[in-house]
Amino acid sequence: MSVTNTEVTTQPAELEPCGQQNHPDCGIRDVLDRVGDKWSVLVIVELANGVRRFRQLQLAIDGISQRMLTLTVRRLERDGLVLRTAYPTMPAQVDYRLTETGASLTHLVKALADWSLAHREEISHSREIYDAQHPGNEIR
């Protein structure tokens, strides 16, 4: 993928684990990959607070690049979790909001975010201990 590519990509059908309807992972892994990635979680948390324009999302989500935000909202839109509305103004105004399906996910994502905040010091401490016991073998 080039640096400027912002298209939503999909796997070829023959590579997808859900090629057979009875496959035990059918649907679950794909959904968890989307809602479990770092940027999607942060976008959903921010949109849980209401409608946002692209720039508002970018400013609210520390460290996200314009390209990554574009990819993330397009993927969430494709999955039916985010609704993108473009208004016929000059320059064009675009806003993003959670769909009903996306909104139904917010309590789970918020619980995960709250858990992360509540345990970040404990996890950081555990990482320091691990890294001290395994020098040169840090996992990132």
Results as ranks from 00 to 15, higher is better:
Gly80Met: 06
Gly80Glu: 07
Gly80Tyr: 05
Leu81Phe: 03
Leu81Tyr: 01
Leu81Asn: 00
Leu81Cys: 02
Leu81Ala: 00
Leu81Pro: 01
Val82Pro: 02
Val82Cys: 09
Val82Phe: 02
Leu83Gly: 04
Leu83Glu: 11
Leu83Gln: 08
Leu83Asn: 08
Arg84Thr: 08
Arg84Phe: 07
Arg84Pro: 06
Arg84Ile: 02
Arg84Ala: 06
Arg84Gly: 09
Thr85Met: 10
Thr85Tyr: 03
Thr85Cys: 10
Thr85Ile: 11
Ala86Tyr: 03
Ala86Pro: 05
Tyr87Ser: 11
Tyr87Phe: 15
Tyr87Val: 10
Tyr87Leu: 14
Tyr87Ala: 12
Pro88Trp: 02
Thr89Gln: 12
Thr89Trp: 04
Met90Arg: 15
Met90Trp: 14
Met90Pro: 11
Pro91Lys: 06
Pro91Asn: 07
Pro91Val: 04
Pro91Asp: 09
Pro91Ala: 09
Ala92Thr: 14
Ala92Cys: 13
Ala92Pro: 04
Gln93Ile: 13
Gln93Ser: 11
Val94Arg: 07
Val94Thr: 14
Asp95Val: 03
Tyr96His: 11
Tyr96Pro: 06
Arg97Ser: 11
Arg97Asp: 10
Arg97Trp: 05
Leu98Tyr: 01
Thr99Val: 05
Thr99Ala: 00
Thr99Pro: 02
Glu100Lys: 05
Glu100Asp: 10
Glu100Phe: 03
Glu100Ile: 03
Thr101Leu: 09
Ala103Pro: 03
Ser104Cys: 13
Ser104Leu: 09
Thr106Ile: 02
His107Pro: 01
Leu108Phe: 06
Leu108Ile: 05
Leu108Ser: 03
Leu108Tyr: 04
Leu108Val: 05
Val109Thr: 00
Val109Gly: 01
Lys110Met: 14
Lys110Phe: 08
Lys110Arg: 15
Lys110Asn: 14
Ala111Glu: 03
Ala111Gln: 07
Ala111Arg: 02
Ala111Phe: 01
Ala111Val: 02
Leu112Trp: 02
Leu112Thr: 04
Leu112Gln: 07
Leu112His: 05
Ala113Asn: 07
Ala113Trp: 03
Ala113Lys: 05
Asp114Asn: 12
Asp114Ala: 07
Trp115Val: 04
Trp115Gly: 04
Trp115Tyr: 14
Trp115Ser: 02
Trp115Leu: 04
Ser116Phe: 07
Ser116Gly: 11
Ser116Val: 09
Ser116Asn: 12
Leu117Trp: 13
Ala118Phe: 00
Ala118Lys: 08
Ala118His: 06
Ala118Asn: 08
His119Asp: 13
His119Gln: 14
Arg120Ala: 13
Glu121Ile: 10
Glu121Asp: 14
Glu121Ala: 13
Glu122Asn: 12
Glu122Met: 13
Glu122Val: 13
Glu122Gly: 09
Glu122Trp: 12
Ser124Tyr: 14
His125Glu: 15
His125Arg: 15
His125Ser: 15
Arg127Gly: 06
Arg127Asp: 11
Glu128Phe: 13
Glu128Ser: 14
Ile129Gly: 04
Tyr130Pro: 02
Tyr130Phe: 09
Tyr130Lys: 09
Tyr130Ile: 06
Asp131Tyr: 07
Asp131Lys: 05
Ala132Cys: 10
Ala132Ser: 15
Ala132Leu: 11
Gln133Val: 10
Gln133Lys: 15
Gln133Asp: 14
Gln133Arg: 15
Gln133Cys: 13
His134Gln: 08
His134Val: 08
